[in-house]
């Protein structure tokens, strides 16, 4: 759901990065493309993961095994930013499939530490903390990982702009990103098509160390909601297993009717009124 930096409250940030970039370029001419690329990726990160100061949306998720069998999940997802490029809270409330209805998941994403995750299991009427030391695990059994949903800090990778291209019929800048510490990522490198206009990552391709394309992410629909370009339809395809997951957003808003307490794990069994209507 939650995207695009609104031009107003992001400007100082862009300014800072521009100055940093300018200084870097002056000091080290060879770092030109790398520094500019990092700046672009930071913008993209903000546009995609920190749009607005939060929001919520209803999500329809279709998992496909590539052989015609599908599973559908439906849930509400809400986000609340604590600081740009910093901590965030996510709240997920499941509606379907029927046997998991009322299951709820809250994630306190920490930029500098492991996330906190709590799950409410209705069958046991139990809130359980889930020790999460791996953001690369699958998000609710889909082809998206937690990291794909909540973002990977651009500073964890080295970036290099590798030229203009287009995706989804839009002009894009291709950026190759290589993890600084290979152990922090499942991929050896990835290529991102960053939309020149919205800075949204229109497409991402993840390669393994053998140079094989492992996963491909694509935005297939962008709508402008409350003035913010929003990717309302996206697909992650695992080219190795043939599985894919498509998620569609409806009822998107960046002015959520949510309070900080709604993201408190102790209230997990009582979902916000907005989601039970």
């Amino acid at each position: 759901m939650l995207r695009e930096l609104s031009p107003f409250n992001r400007r100082p940030c862009v300014l800072v990065w521009s100055i940093v970039a300018a200084v870097m370029i002056l000091r080290c001419p060879t770092a030109l493309s790398q520094t500019a690329a990092l700046g672009l990726m930071n913008q993209s990160h903000l546009a995609y993961y920190y749009a607005g100061d939060g929001g919520h949306a209803r999500v329809n998720m279709i998992l496909s095994d590539g052989r015609g069998r599908t599973q559908t999940r439906e849930f509400w997802i809400a986000r609340r930013d604590i600081a740009d490029m910093g901590d965030q809270n996510y709240y997920t409330y499941f509606l379907k499939p029927a046997d998991v209805a009322r299951t709820a998941l809250v994630i306190h994403k920490k930029a500098q530490a492991n996330d906190d995750r709590w799950l409410y299991v209705p069958a046991l009427d139990l809130v359980k903390r889930i020790a999460a030391d791996d953001r690369r695990a699958s998000f609710v059994g889909s082809d998206f990982t937690y990291e794909d949903i909540s973002g990977r800090l651009p500073s964890l990778d080295k970036h290099e702009a590798i030229g203009p291209d287009s995706a989804l019929g839009r002009a894009a800048t291709k950026v190759k990103s290589t993890p600084v510490n290979p152990k922090t990522a499942d991929y050896a490198w990835r290529v991102t098509w960053v939309d020149v206009d919205s800075k949204l990552p229109l497409r991402e391709e993840y390669y393994d160390a053998r140079g094989t394309l492992q996963r491909r992410f694509e935005i297939t629909k962008i709508e402008t909601i409350e003035g913010i370009p929003t990717a309302t339809e996206r697909t992650m395809t695992n080219l190795q297993s043939g599985h894919s997951t498509t998620i569609r957003f409806t009822d998107v808003t960046y002015k959520p009717d949510l309070k900080a307490e709604d993201f408190n794990e102790r209230l997990l069994k009582n979902p916000p009124a907005a989601f039970t209507r």
Partner: peptide
């Protein structure tokens, strides 16, 4: 309960 356990499992383990 079985459905929720398996769901929980799918949320944490490798698909």
């Amino acid at each position: 309960a079985v459905g929720q356990y398996l769901f929980l499992f799918s949320m944490s383990a490798k698909p």
